[in-house]
Amino acid sequence: MGATTLEGVILGIDTSLGTAVAVVDSDGAVRAEAQSANPLGHAEVIGTLLADALRDAARGPIGSTAAPAPVELTHVAAGMGPGPFTGLRVGIAAARAFALGRGLPVVPVPSHDAAALAILLADPFADLPRFAVVTDARRREFAYTVYDGLDDDGLPIRATEPALVPQVDLDDRLAALGAVRRDVTAIPAAMIALAAARAVAAGRTLAEGEPLYLRAPDVTLPGAPKKVTG
């Protein structure tokens, strides 16, 4: 990993699958985590999860006996998808608004990068073969991103950008790419925050500021008005 480290505390938010919120130190120490696995209801739970995570983070590390003190956040990291649009937007809107309220920068992170980081850090000494993070994209499609281990900044190396594939074609596609399939059903917000911390420390940008929709809006252009008489 690179020599630069960032002194900071990052709030991570992701709603690309369930709803996940975490407060993480830039060295990766998790101060608080709160999540809902429900693939719906993001707008309902996001406020409570944010409030819970901030309250828990204020209590300090487990076992701490000091009086709670609000954490001084330095960044807000937003999971940018891919994911079902309606839910995905709730987290991005929340991240932006939260950052606005505190005058903090927003760090966009591809949600699959966080899942890949979790997989790669689960056993740092394992020599993982090339793998693909695979998430449900609904409408009989999967979203996938292929990764090749960690780079010197401690960030997952993307071998492909996030893309959609019909469910029936996924295994052939991954075989062609030489990637092992890793199905993911939850994006850890702590890994969103950690990826953001590492990106900021390295002066890198992981994603553009816009959501990774991967699909155009579902609309049909109107034809001529329908006849009402025969």
Binding site: A43, I46, L50, T86, R89, A94, A95
Partner: peptide, 14 residues
């Protein structure tokens, strides 16, 4: 939902 997500986060943030 976009407005609600933003409003809740802004309220908690502030």
């Amino acid at each position: 939902m976009v407005g609600i997500g933003a409003a809740k986060a802004l309220a908690v943030s502030l």
